[in-house]
Design a protein around this nucleic acid. Sequence first.
DNA 1: AAACTGACCAACG
DNA 2: CCGTTGGCCAGTT
Length: 101
Amino acid sequence: MLFRDRVLQVVSRIPPGRVATYGDVARMAGRARAARAVGTILRTATRRGLPYHRVVAAGGGLGGYGGHAEFKAALLAAEGIVVRKGRIQQFRQHLWPSPGK
DNA sequence: AAACTGACCAACG
DNA sequence: CCGTTGGCCAGTT
């Protein structure tokens, strides 16, 4: 199975209202250090019309959305995630699969 | 086939 | 808290 497909599968399993970081997705997809590649993959995916907006940057930033970060923020907001000053509030708690500590 | 490009990230200064 | 640096890897040119 292509790395791309595993990434898309993993992302599609992120429950609404939760988010995962690029690095986490990379890890779940089997390539712990491929966070960057995940970015390229999701970008092409968006171009295909798949709204993979639940993947955010480590540290609470939004990451990108092919130049449509506003839309991404709106989608997250619709799922109950508060984004302010480009940062996700209570980022740690929305994190999936595990809020960590 | 080789080089370039980024929705990344952690570590420094 | 910002900018830089080096490493990473799939996709695109």
